[in-house]
Design a protein around this nucleic acid. Structure first.
Lengths: 96, 96, 96, 96
DNA sequence: ACTGAAGGCTGCCCGC
DNA sequence: GCGGGCAGCCTTCAGT
């Protein structure tokens, strides 16, 4: 067995862990920033709970929209396949 | 074809769903009970986090536990001292 | 310090853990039962994915209903408090 | 009263929400990056569960880690031998 | 066996 | 300081 395998693997492992730790730290910092915005909003008289709710709803709306798009896409693909058949052509015309 | 097939299938479906719902409710109740035990333990001064850890360890097969620890050991070694060692190799072989 | 404290605490700890383990096992068994029902349904030609969805929707409906009840309850309490005032009485009369 | 207060507040609210959404998106992207690292590590034969554990341990303060271990030790002792021991007492005092 | 999704569980943050 | 509520993580499950 290659005697260097262990060392090389160790280097890789170290690299993975350090990259993860660095990104985790960035993530933590961003979370902190978000928290600060809520603090600022609160100090300006806004109700943070409501803001959180608004943010959440907007995110959910976006998700719903994405889902709608996905379904629409699905239909389009289904129609696309049908387009090769006489039946499909009439369907397409009706769906026009 | 038997005109009752649809109705019979409907009955079956209903039965499945009701059985599932009943069992799910039981499961939920048990989960609640477990949570209560942790609350009780906490109110008596125990550290619930540690209890959770103990429960988890006890649930794991002894062999699996040993293997997990061996891998952890191996990785720690790799991080601590990047140079390959005979000890590390044997650990690798065990974890293989 | 009471020399028995340690032992008594140990007994309690043991009791907690054993109760948790017993309940966890029950929970696991129920989860198994649920899975079996899905297997049975599938073997009888039902689409399990659809059944899962139905179960989920019924659960969500129930939740929604519970929420509606909670809101209604809230209103009733609010009206109950108002009932002691002339203004509240007229509100109650209007609310029928 | 200044008629523009409402509009100004609306602008501010909008600003807060957009800043939060932007940061949340950044956070999400970083989380994605972290996940990718784990995928890469896995594809190179590393045990991601162990890596997660290592990262977590490294993130914990050394003192906290030691305390956790002390409590775990104490509890294990309490389970293993329910009779009180001098050793157990000292562990209790340390964990106190 | 791996992957992607769903549900449950844990830890965190807020408000009281 | 605590308990409730919420986001993130982990585990499990169906499908490929």
């Amino acid at each position: 067995m290659d005697n260097n395998v262990g060392a090389v693997a160790g280097e890789r492992l170290k690299s993975y862990i350090e990259r993860i730790e660095r990104l985790t730290e960035e993530k933590r910092a961003i979370a902190e920033d978000i928290k600060e915005i809520y603090v600022e909003a609160k100090s300006n008289g806004f109700d943070t709970k409501t803001i959180r709710r608004l943010v959440k709803e907007r995110a959910m709306d976006a998700d719903d929209l994405a889902e709608q798009e996905a379904i629409l896409d699905l239909y389009k693909r289904a129609l696309g396949q049908l387009a090769d058949t006489p039946l499909g052509e009439s369907a397409l015309r009706r769906a026009g």
